[in-house]
Write a protein that binds this DNA or RNA. Structure first.
Lengths: 214, 214
DNA sequence: GAATGTGAATTTATTCACAGCA
DNA sequence: TGCTGTGAATAAATTCACATTC
């Protein structure tokens, strides 16, 4: 039986780590490994073993003392914790270089994320096709979301358009956004926004590279 | 005079925040704003004002008590802290969907990151051109890096190839890597690796979306 | 008076260390 | 004996609160 979890009691940093564990566990399963200890897993992903056990402990008890974890069971448990037992419908807003690259990427569907629509504001790309049916006008977004469930928006518009675009997505009922535009956006607090920010990652590297002020 | 900073005394989370401040400050400058307080800036990016001041304090004193910060001065200071006063040479390894999208993206050069080469292992794409000269074979990487400085590698190869690719980049003398492959890679400790992980971001969203176990 | 810069207090996250169970 | 699960201890990050300076 699925234990009821208070999500606010789960540290924010635990969730991306669960995704990492899941990935490694699937790799182990593919190699035919059936059992693993927190110590082994920790070594494989360069982490403290207690960290892994504590991360699991927010959700339940998945292992056997003295033995370890059964790989398949752990995969199932983590997938359930992450909400991956169902499929989530995704739209991409912004059919530029990045948006179209994401649309053609097959990795999402493998994880249970299904691209159901693609939107742009430019007449130049509306009607084109990139693996998710034709590109629609953002003006149709609200109507589209009314006709079918849309859970997540990937926003790949230019920075100056991001806030307006996300306002529109939220108005259409979307409550989860992955924002690739390099700008902090404001949303109602029941909307989850994650930022993917390449220039900030590059700056992180340049900060550490810069040996001048070491 | 540039103060000498011990980078290990700067919290890891401070660095990406500096990138955020820089972005907002440039926006303010573009709008003609000449002065800003930590309180104002905090409001604009939804942060605590003391956080901002503390972040700056690791690097020096950039403001004037009772007055605030001069926007241009602050931009210059942060850019210097982040190592952005010089240009960094970047290569992209992996000329797939994402790699070619990144190669065509103009945002990098605006920030002082210059794409100087692109590599792939597949004969199908070697020789093609995407805005950084022709795609070279990864076999040429070491030779290429010997002939010119390469500071950063963006790695956009499939997961199974990522560790080998990064080993190769490190052998060629590259010490900073932005890894888009969904796998944890191991490197010598003087090499900085940052991970950009879309599927983990999507899982973060699905975790919070999943109202079943709220 | 107003806003910075920073120790002190608080909160959050990580790691230790061991009781408890197979 | 071996490894989990978890309180207690430690470390790291954030926020408070105020002395300091313009």
């Amino acid at each position: 039986m699925a234990r009821r979890i208070d999500k606010s009691s789960v540290p924010a940093v635990t969730v991306p780590r669960l995704a990492t564990y899941l990935r490694k566990l699937r790799e182990l399963r593919a190699r035919g490994v059936e059992r693993v200890s927190s110590k082994d897993l920790a070594q494989m992903i360069d982490l403290n073993a207690a960290q892994i056990r504590k991360d699991f402990s927010y959700f339940g008890e998945f292992g056997t003392r003295g033995v370890g974890y059964e790989v398949q069971r752990l995969i199932d448990e983590i997938a359930r914790c992450l909400g991956l037992e169902r499929t989530w419908n995704v739209v991409i807003i912004g059919a530029g270089l990045l948006g179209t690259a994401l649309a053609r990427y097959r990795g999402f569907s493998e994880q249970g994320f299904r691209l159901v629509g693609m939107f742009d504001s430019s007449a130049r790309v509306i009607g084109a096709s990139y693996g998710a049916g034709r590109v629609r006008s953002v003006a149709e977004l609200e109507e589209f979301c009314a006709a079918q469930t849309v859970d997540i928006a990937l926003v790949t518009v230019p920075a100056h358009a991001a806030q307006g675009t996300i306002d529109r997505a939220v108005a259409a009922g979307i409550t989860a956004v992955l924002n690739f535009a390099p700008i902090k956006v404001f949303t109602p607090k029941d909307v989850i926004v994650r930022q993917v920010d390449l220039s900030s990652e590059l700056m992180f590297l340049s900060f550490h590279l810069d040996r001048g002020s070491d």
